[in-house]
């Protein structure tokens, strides 16, 4: 009896804390939506017009076609996907070695790769800026993609190694008995069976690349080349109070793909993240 009542009180307390927290995290996004569907006049009503009287989708249309955001979306998607794909290609063999070979210095090498992740992009970009200029790769998507791949490698190696670890090693042995060499085993057995883990590593890379700002901000000055992150930053700099609704729409366009990608694959992504976290 007493236990049950304490539990009910606990449940009420849980919601009393949970609801304000949910509000804190939700309100900024809802506010952005509210601004993005307002007419310019309604912007000036502030919070009293939280739900606009004349909601409109015209802002999105204007931003996408009038301000070049269709191009920026395309650039952002291209760079994110290429970067993620490249990171997988480079990281998967190393992840396989970390998962399937035992060799001296393996633990140290894995720690070393993790340590790389702590290096700020700014530290490497200052010298890289000069190399890229020298190689003629400034202002190119190729140069940006290469840096995205490099930045994505540490996380990808760890995630893909975890995915490979989950594939029973007896399958490798069975493949070896069937006459597969190491590469065939990797390519035809381990890789396909680790597909869900590879997919979540890919999606996480895409989301991180989508958010990436520093690299394209430093490398690309030509606005035809900008991904959406750089575009909204510059757009914010050029807008005024009378165009807040357009900036909100542009910002929402940058945010929604990331949220959608995350929502669709939340289970996969959370399990990939926590698999590593629990071990640590």
């Amino acid at each position: 009896m007493i236990e049950g009542r304490a539990n009910r009180l606990g449940n009420i307390a849980t919601y009393l804390v949970a609801i304000p927290i949910a509000g804190f995290f939700l309100v900024p996004i809802v506010w952005l939506v509210s601004l993005a569907i307002r007419t310019p006049q309604e912007i000036f009503f502030g919070a009293s017009r939280f739900i606009p009287e004349n909601p409109t989708l015209a802002n999105f249309w204007q931003v996408l076609t009038g301000s070049g955001f269709l191009t920026y979306l395309g650039n952002g998607l291209k760079l994110s996907v290429l970067g993620a794909f490249g990171a997988l290609i480079v990281a998967a063999p190393a992840a396989y070695a970390f998962s399937r070979f035992s060799f001296r210095g393996r633990g140290a090498a894995m720690m070393g790769i993790l340590a790389v992740q702590m290096v700020s992009g700014l530290v490497i970009l200052i010298p890289l800026y000069r190399y890229m200029a020298w190689l003629g790769l400034l202002e190119t998507h190729l140069g940006v993609t290469a840096i995205y791949i490099a930045i994505g490698i540490p996380l990808t190696v760890w995630l893909v190694k975890n995915a490979f670890d989950a594939v029973p090693i007896v399958l490798d042995e069975a493949a070896a008995i069937d006459g597969y060499n190491r590469f065939e085993t990797f390519w035809r057995v381990t890789l396909p069976l680790a597909a869900p883990g590879l997919a979540s590593a890919f999606i996480l890379n895409v989301i991180f690349n989508w958010s990436q700002f520093l690299v394209p901000f430093i490398m690309l000055t030509d606005d035809d080349q900008w991904p959406i992150s750089v575009a909204i930053y510059n757009y914010a700099g050029s807008t005024t109070a009378t165009t807040t609704h357009l900036l909100a729409a542009a910002c929402l366009i940058a945010v929604v793909p990331a949220i959608l990608a995350f929502m669709l694959l939340q289970r996969l992504i959370v399990s990939a993240l926590t698999a590593g976290a629990v071990k640590g």
């Binding site: 939700l26 900024p28 996004i29 958010s211 909204i232 949220i259 995350f262």
Partner: peptide, 20 residues
């Protein structure tokens, strides 16, 4: 999910949203 949603938002968008 709500908390994680804030996390996947690009940092630049975060700054713009909060400046609003």
């Amino acid at each position: 999910t709500i908390v994680l949603t804030a996390w996947v938002i690009p940092g630049v968008a975060n700054g713009i949203i909060w400046s609003m």
